[in-house]
């Protein structure tokens, strides 16, 4: 298999390198990709949408329909991870074995067959593969996480004027929750942000996007033509397009945030949600 693979790869690579001789010169302003369509977007974006970041404007306005389905793909990926890995409590063969640690003395107790200790200050529940709690990591992450989340919100809200937008902000927000799950443990993170909430947020994100489009449809314009929102928002049609972009970016951000956490929870606990990384 290795030799066949090598032959295929070498032949394909040689053909591609041969074809690369015909490519337009590197960074040529007159290359076909930069001459036909893109000058229109570069020159007209500001007058048509009043968004200085062309990438955001094209992503959420001119190509909004495509981005909506990209968001749907991300949503479906989260759902697929859930269906592939999640093992519900009813399907499990053997009852859960829990481990508790007495905080003052450090004695560890193992409880089989699903027995549990009611939550109290004396005992804390620990993972089967236990690493000692590290004060520096826990405190450091607790200080860091609010700033990460604030930055993520800035990235979503400021996507019109600087690099950023719904996708990046959503991923950073998701990463802050994943950081919380890594620095503490998965159970604490799931208690803060339950599976149900994550699923709902995933769907809400996609619905905000599609709902903005449908709202334009109700206001007698095309699907995702945000200038229809001018009457509702009491602004001129051009500013309405800018606000419409912000609305769908928020939807994208929520969907991406929830999907990232969902995939992480399922992968790191292999679907059992008992103990993570």
């Amino acid at each position: 298999m290795k030799i066949i693979g090598l032959i295929i790869v070498v032949v394909t690579g040689a053909l591609l390198i041969y074809a690369a001789a015909d490519f337009p010169a590197w960074s040529d302003p007159a290359s076909p990709a930069s001459t036909y369509l893109s000058p229109y977007f570069i020159e007209k974006t500001m007058e048509e949408t009043s968004v200085p970041n062309i990438v955001t404007a094209v992503l959420a306005d001119y190509r909004g329909f495509d981005t909506m389905f990209e968001t749907t793909v991300i949503f479906s990926a989260g759902v697929v991870c859930f269906f592939l890995l999640r093992i519900s409590r009813r399907e499990e063969e053997e009852p859960e074995t829990r481990y508790y640690r007495h905080v003052l003395t450090g004695v560890t107790i193992q409880l089989k067959e699903g027995y549990k200790i009611p939550p109290s200050a004396d005992f804390e529940r620990i993972d089967a593969v236990w690493t000692p709690p590290d004060l520096i990591i826990k405190t450091g992450c607790r200080i860091l996480i609010p700033f990460i989340q604030l930055f993520a919100l800035y990235v979503i809200a400021h996507g019109h004027h600087s690099p950023g937008g719904g996708f990046q902000g959503g991923v950073i927000l998701g990463a802050s929750v994943i950081l919380f799950a890594i620095s503490h443990d998965l159970r604490t993170a799931v208690r803060r942000m339950s599976e149900k909430l994550i699923g709902i947020l995933c769907a809400v994100g996609v619905s905000i996007y599609a709902g903005t489009g449908a709202l334009c449809l109700l206001l007698k314009q095309n699907f995702l033509d945000y200038s229809a929102l001018a009457g509702v928002l009491h602004v001129d049609p051009i500013t309405a397009r800018s606000h419409g972009i912000l609305m769908v970016e928020i939807g994208v951000g929520i969907a991406v945030l929830a999907t990232m956490i969902w995939i992480y929870n399922n992968i790191s606990s292999a679907g059992r949600y008992r103990q993570g990384l």
Binding site: F167, Q168, I178, Y264
Partner: peptide, 10 residues
């Protein structure tokens, strides 16, 4: 954020 951050964690 995605490639160097989240996918490494995955």
């Amino acid at each position: 954020s995605v490639g160097a951050g989240v996918s490494t964690v995955f």
